[in-house]
Amino acid sequence: MLAFLLLVFSTLAVFVVAQAVVTVDCGKNSMSVRWTEKNTQLDPSQLRLGDCPPTQVSVTPQGSEAAFYAEFLTCNIRRLVTTNEIKFETEITSPSLSKATPIYYPVGCAYKRQEDWAPPLYDPLLFHIHGQGELAFRMDLMTDDFSGVTTTTTFSLGSMIPVAASVSQQNHQPLILLLDECLASTTPELGPDSHVYPVITNKGCFVDGKNTNSRFLPRNQLSEIRLNVQAFKFATGEDVYLHCSLVAWDPTNLDSGNKACQYDRTNSRWVLVDDPSQSSLCSCCDTNCQGRKKREITAGTTSVTSVIGPLVM
């Protein structure tokens, strides 16, 4: 619990944004946000805190109001850790509306970091272990809520294909799982003449998400990565195989060649999924990304290629 990790926490902040007033109340492990707007053309139910809708809305002739309550690490709230602080950040946004300018307003809570703080995703008994050990990679098609592996292999165009990949790392230093590349092909093996459709390329850039709703999902743990791939027109009606290169990497040593980036279409920029403050690592996604040589982190394999299929769109 954050209550045992933090020395102090912010309580209440009030900001004025154009005609709106934003109030952020930071709790021990959650934030409450209230957006009050005099512009009656704004439908407060359209607002989002991260990817969550308001918990309460009201509209009167005097204006509109949206209230949000979210626990940290839900609703696409990101945790950023610096030398002295732990920050939880997200944005209030709205879709493009005919009578209103789209809204994008960052909100967050900042806390003082204890010197001995370690990410709760790690077992504290394993956090400082740097053992050598075999790594077991896995990639599966999942149910829509990622509660288990699915047996469905046929997808309607435009629907989401849930995919989860993981690496088992017993007796090993903590590693982050990344997808170096994912290509769709009509063959179970890639060859020089294979017909392919790029999903993730350029060492972790989710290029398919530039023009579709494909996206990475928030991590539950660093050793797992989840994504939704929107079913595409490539090879409609034929067998399709998804070829992905899975890489286990030092989470403290991300670079332009080892990263997870997706395109923020609202702001027309690439964003580093695991730490937006380092999104400059994604600036090469539209050109050519080159990373450092792999660190000698294990005597076993640190990358594999996994294939899912056949799928039918």
Rank of each mutant, 00 (worst) to 15 (best):
residue 124 P to R: 13
residue 127 F to S: 00
residue 127 F to D: 02
residue 127 F to W: 10
residue 127 F to T: 01
residue 127 F to V: 05
residue 129 I to F: 13
residue 130 H to C: 13
residue 130 H to W: 09
residue 130 H to Y: 10
residue 132 Q to R: 11
residue 132 Q to P: 07
residue 134 E to C: 03
residue 135 L to K: 03
residue 136 A to N: 10
residue 142 M to L: 06
residue 145 D to C: 02
residue 145 D to Y: 07
residue 145 D to W: 10
residue 146 F to P: 12
residue 146 F to A: 07
residue 147 S to C: 03
residue 148 G to A: 09
residue 152 T to W: 01
residue 154 T to F: 03
residue 155 F to C: 00
residue 155 F to D: 02
residue 158 G to N: 01
residue 161 I to R: 03
residue 162 P to R: 00
residue 163 V to Q: 08
residue 163 V to L: 07
residue 163 V to H: 11
residue 164 A to G: 03
residue 165 A to T: 14
residue 167 V to S: 00
residue 169 Q to G: 06
residue 170 Q to S: 09
residue 170 Q to M: 02
residue 170 Q to V: 02
residue 171 N to W: 04
residue 172 H to A: 05
residue 173 Q to C: 06
residue 173 Q to W: 11
residue 174 P to K: 01
residue 176 I to H: 10
residue 176 I to A: 12
residue 177 L to Y: 01
residue 177 L to C: 01
residue 178 L to K: 08
residue 179 L to K: 05
residue 180 D to I: 09
residue 181 E to W: 06
residue 182 C to A: 09
residue 183 L to G: 15
residue 186 T to M: 05
residue 188 P to M: 03
residue 189 E to Q: 15
residue 189 E to K: 13
residue 190 L to E: 10
residue 191 G to L: 12
residue 193 D to H: 13
residue 193 D to A: 13
residue 194 S to P: 04
residue 196 V to D: 05
residue 196 V to E: 07
residue 198 P to W: 06
residue 200 I to F: 11
residue 200 I to G: 03
residue 201 T to F: 08
residue 202 N to T: 04
residue 204 G to Y: 12
residue 204 G to S: 04
residue 207 V to H: 06
residue 209 G to D: 02
residue 210 K to G: 00
residue 211 N to G: 10
residue 211 N to K: 15
residue 213 N to D: 13
residue 214 S to G: 04
residue 214 S to M: 07
